[in-house]
């Protein structure tokens, strides 16, 4: 409804294709909110991973070739892992801001030439294990499970052998049994057609995950105060909206998977209880390894607020 010919256009880099759920369900709505909040004074133009590969997108935004970054912090964890740690912190967006978690991360990124605009979660819970065979009493004992580095401590603690493998190889590996399972998000597994090759999904689900929207700091400082306010307000609103929105999407994805014949298999009660702690400890371990005191500072802050292990 609000279109302004004289609108200033920001260029945005996204780590996801426009059809991938994490972008599709957040990106366009965020752009719409920015337009609304700025009364049509600001617009954002999408550029995908065909313009800059997903894992190399932080630097071009940092150097100002692009203005806005839509990403997951794991994709630049070699530069800093403080953002990554947010996946170990409870998802309540209001409480995250009140407890100073948001500001802490923002300040950290500003030292690196980036301004944090928003950290929308993709649902109240983030992950589950997708398996070829149902669970028995001994959790993941003897199974080879694909997971990125954040999952490794958890998979080991559950008796499994963590395998590091590119996404492109996972389908074939599950199909042939090279791998016994994979830890994956609650949305997106059906896009990758995991249901064709892994007929079980484990309960309970665990952890949380979200994306981050950031901006080049110089470009941010050059915005008019009203424009800055519009960006931040759009960022705050999208955090509130996306939580409920993704919970609904996850329920739909669940139905899709069941519809494709995927069955539920359960961890023992004892194991189910420790999944959360295993997940968040694993994330903190990784974050503190790369970013040391900066990550530990965030850990203390979140712990004091009772939002993490």
């Amino acid at each position: 409804p609000v279109d302004n010919a004289s609108a200033e256009t920001l260029s945005m880099l996204s780590g996801y294709a426009p059809t991938f759920a994490w972008y599709r369900e957040i990106g366009p709505r965020f752009i719409e909110l920015v337009k609304e909040e700025s009364k049509g004074d600001l617009d954002i133009r999408y550029n995908g991973p065909d313009t800059v590969p997903t894992f190399e997108q932080f630097q071009p935004v940092q150097s100002g070739v692009f203005d806005v970054l839509f990403t997951h912090p794991a994709y630049h964890s070699g530069t800093t892992s403080v953002g990554l740690a947010i996946d170990a912190i409870a998802v309540d967006p209001v409480k995250r801001r009140e407890a100073g978690v948001f500001d802490y991360i923002d300040k950290h990124y500003q030292k690196r030439g980036m301004k944090l605009i928003s950290a929308p979660s993709t649902g109240t819970k983030g992950f589950r294990f997708y398996l070829r065979e149902p669970l028995k009493d001994d959790a993941l004992k003897g199974r080879k499970i694909r997971g990125t580095v954040s999952y490794h401590p958890m998979i080991k603690a559950l008796g499994g052998a963590p395998v590091n493998m590119p996404v492109s190889e996972v389908y074939t590996a599950l199909q042939r049994g090279t791998m016994d399972g994979a830890a994956w998000g609650l949305t997106g597994a059906s896009d990758l057609k995991f249901y064709e090759v892994a007929k079980y999904m484990a309960d309970p689900v665990f952890g949380q995950v979200g994306v981050m929207i950031m901006m080049n700091l110089e470009r941010w400082n050059a915005l008019k105060p009203a424009q800055q306010k519009a960006m931040l307000e759009a960022g705050r609103k999208i955090e509130l909206e996306s939580l409920a929105h993704f919970d609904k999407l996850q329920a739909e994805e669940y139905k899709t998977l069941i519809g494709h014949g995927v069955q539920i298999t359960k961890f023992s009660d004892a194991d189910a209880k420790r999944l959360e702690a295993l997940w968040s400890n694993g994330v903190w371990e990784v974050a503190e390894q790369v970013s040391g005191d900066d990550a530990r500072g965030l850990h203390n802050l979140a712990r004091k607020a009772g939002m993490t292990e």
């Binding site: 530069t79 990125t148 590091n164």
Partner: peptide, 14 residues
């Protein structure tokens, strides 16, 4: 200078 690491499981200076 900026000490950026690789993204791998074994992160080494890029």
């Amino acid at each position: 200078k900026s000490g950026i690491l690789t993204l791998g499981t074994i992160a080494v200076p890029k």
